[in-house]
């Protein structure tokens, strides 16, 4: 194990960036997989959402929204850019940072799971609303979902995605929050 205290500040910063980017990359690579046990009604945990929540919990609203925006753009590229995922994830980052968990809620897995549950429902709702606005804008155009289809589908996936994401959230949250905590402590120790 590397001793973080002994590293040069710049080395440590680069290491921090690498770990953060690496964790995002792992999330992205997990998205298209369907591992047995990770699937419920052919829905996967929303790894990017878990990452955004883990990132935003102890950060400012601006940082949370920025992380959501960035990951949302990446997910747009991997699926389809309209409607965008960036909006939903940015709102998730913003709200998670706004909750200011450390002030009101005790830090444990249950509260993280609860936040992820709520945010997953929220993110799917934002997507569904975007789809609904799309149907109003472009009536009569072929290849569109109808309003009833969107909202029935929304019920199904919002619930299964929320359950799965909240169950898998600690897997991602625990190591990441530990890492960021260590980095912060070692940075404060040096200044």
């Amino acid at each position: 194990m590397i001793d973080l205290y002994e590293l040069h500040p710049n080395t440590r910063r680069i290491l921090d960036c690498l770990v953060t980017a690496g964790s995002v990359l792992i999330c992205l690579l997990l998205l298209p997989t369907r591992l047995p046990g990770m699937e419920l009604l052919s829905v996967n945990p929303n790894w990017l959402l878990i990452w955004v929540v883990a990132w935003s919990v102890k950060r400012t609203m601006f940082q949370g929204a920025l992380a959501g925006l960035t990951l949302g753009f990446i997910q747009d590229g991997m699926t389809s850019p309209s409607p965008t995922h960036a909006l939903g994830l940015a709102i998730v980052g913003l709200l998670t940072a706004r909750i200011q968990k450390q002030r009101y809620i005790k830090e444990d897995f249950i509260s993280i799971a609860l936040i992820v549950f709520g945010m997953a429902v929220l993110a799917e709702t934002v997507t569904a609303i975007q789809f609904s606005l799309g149907t109003v804008g472009a009536e009569a155009e072929g290849g569109q979902r109808t309003l009833s289809e969107i909202w029935i589908y929304h019920q199904q996936i919002a619930l299964s995605s929320a359950i799965l994401s909240s169950l898998w959230a600690p897997v991602l949250y625990y190591p990441l929050s530990r890492w960021w905590e260590q980095i912060q402590i070692s940075e404060q120790a040096q200044t």
């Binding site: 997910q75 991997m78 995605s161």
Partner: peptide, 14 residues
């Protein structure tokens, strides 16, 4: 087929 859609709103395979 090495993967499925990265989002539940789209039905895609990789």
């Amino acid at each position: 087929v090495i993967g499925r859609s990265p989002d539940h709103w789209w039905q895609q395979i990789i």
